[in-house]
Structure formats: C-alpha cells, structure tokens
Design a protein around this nucleic acid. Structure first.
Lengths: 141, 141
DNA sequence: CCATAAAAATATAAATATATATCAAATTGC
DNA sequence: GCAATTTGATATATATTTATATTTTTATGG
C-alpha cells in the first residue's frame, strides 16, 4: 500500500514551491537542499509533473520552476497521478491493457475498485494550499 | 499506491479457502493451481498469515489449511495487514522507529495519516464473506 | 561571450520485490 | 514403514524501484 518515492517527493516538491516561491523562479538545487532530496533524483521526477502542465519553467540564468496555478487549484490527487501515473492499488486497474485474464472471475477486483474510489475521493478532496497550511489531520493517530 | 503481491495473493488465497474448503484440509498445491499462483511463492506468503492466527493447519497425509474462523469474521484489512505488515502508505507511519528526522516539519505527513485512515476504514469495513459473494462494487468505474 | 540552470539522454549502482528451485525435517493417516 | 504434506532454511534469478553520476544541449540575463 506504499506511495512510491516518486509521488512522495513530487508532493513535497510542490509544497516547497508553494511555500518558497516569491517573484522569480526557484532553482531545483534550492528545493533539493531544503527538502534533503538528491537533486539528481528530482531531475528524474520533475519531468513527470512538468509534462502534466503543473509547472512553468525558464532555463538559463536565474531559471527554475514556478507553480503554473495557485496552490489551492492543485489537488493532491492530481499531483500524485502526474508523478505515479495512476492511483490504482493494483495493476489490473491501471490501464485497459493491464486487465488480467482472470479479471472476470476475480472476486478481489471489486475490493480494489472500491479502494481506488475512496483513495481518489480523499486525495482529490485536499488541495495544495491546505497541505502547506497544515490545517486538520494532525490530531489523528 | 500499489498493494504488493503479498497482500493481493494473500487475499485471493483466503477467498479461495472460503469458497473451496469442505470438511477436510485444503492442500496448498490445489490453491496454487486454482489461483494460478506459484506454489513456491505462496509457501513464502502463507507463514505471514499463518503466524497471525488466521489459519489452522495439519501436516502429513491429507494435510493442508483451513480458515480458523468463519469467512464473515475476517476483514480484508486484517488479512492485508497480516500479509504486508501494515497498511501505512509511507514508511514514516509504519513503526515508531521509522519516523524520519523531518517528521516535525513535514507538511505532507498529515496527508498520509488521513489517507491511512480512509484506507483502514474501507478495508476493515469489508469481510471475507462479502468478498466471495461478490456483492456490491462491480458497477463502479 | 559568459555564467547559470533547465532539459535530455544514458549509464551505473544499490536496494527491494517478485519468483523459482532445492533440500531436509517434521507430522499425519494409512 | 510409507506416502503425502507442511515447515523451514537457503540459494538463486529476475524485475523494478530508488538513487547517483556523467555528458550534452538549450536557453536566458547580464
């Protein structure tokens, strides 16, 4: 049930941008240092969320990244889906090609479909602004 | 967000037992054949759920496995936790030792705590009898 | 032109997950 | 005792994920 590092780092990176971006662009180097994540590894993750149109970028001197939208306009779900490709808990549900042969007789498939539903509803119900404000949830176990 | 094969196979194995067990014990060989899972791999997974007390076993001639309780007395959550150790979506939440240094300042941690909560509530709300009856959920996307 | 930094491609390493294979020991019903 | 089967211990192989490293290209401001 683990969220991969791609998704976790992507969310931390987006939250870092939301908190730290001012007027200009933010260098990946700075994000990596603040978040204590390998810059090289982030370089592999950032194209995933960049292609999904979540960021604006400039190259060259004082280049870097900015959020393409306001923090409240991103859901956690869309960030994780951009980074991980999908929030499906089993590969059978990821793409039509992945449906396995036993699909028709598989009694566990409805369980996973329902799981994906509650996960998506939860993740799409939280926006990035809420995340950086840190409101709610801390008092849970 | 993927459930590992350990958890998926464990659930299929428990569902298979619930459907196919009669009076005697069910040989792992038969489960493996029906579910088209490597018997050798199941041999590694079954101790995990066996240690959790979910099964009764006998060795020897006509030995094998049975459910220790009625199907409706198992939740999907307890089966997955037995097989995977935890349903936590990030390692920070698995055990106290796993909490990372950045825990205090980590704005994403509440997101994962909330995710674990909705996942646990969903998985603990489904019992094995419901799974094998296949009721509900099929009409979802 | 120069320094900076994204973008890209690629290679490599390490760790983990998934899977198969082999052997020996313990248990049980016959 | 014998056959069937779990149990346990290892060993190995493969695939995937995670992470680091290297190199080149492109773009930008000064």
């Amino acid at each position: 049930m683990m969220v991969s590092t791609r998704g976790r780092y992507a969310l931390r990176m987006m939250a870092d941008l939301a908190v730290n971006q001012k007027d200009g662009y933010v260098a990946l180097k700075d994000i990596a240092e603040r978040q204590q994540i390998s810059k090289k590894y982030l370089e592999q993750i950032i194209p995933l969320i960049n292609k999904a149109g979540l960021l604006t970028t400039t190259r060259g001197f004082q280049g870097g990244y900015r959020l393409a939208k306001l923090p409240e306009e991103y859901t956690v779900g869309e960030i994780l889906r951009a980074a991980e490709g999908s929030t499906a808990p089993v590969s059978c549900l990821e793409t039509p090609e992945n449906t396995c042969i036993r699909c028709g007789e598989c009694v566990t498939l409805p369980v996973w479909k329902g799981l994906r539903k509650v996960v998506d509803e939860y993740l799409d119900g939280i926006n990035l602004q809420t995340v950086i404000e840190g409101s709610g949830n801390e008092d849970e176990i």
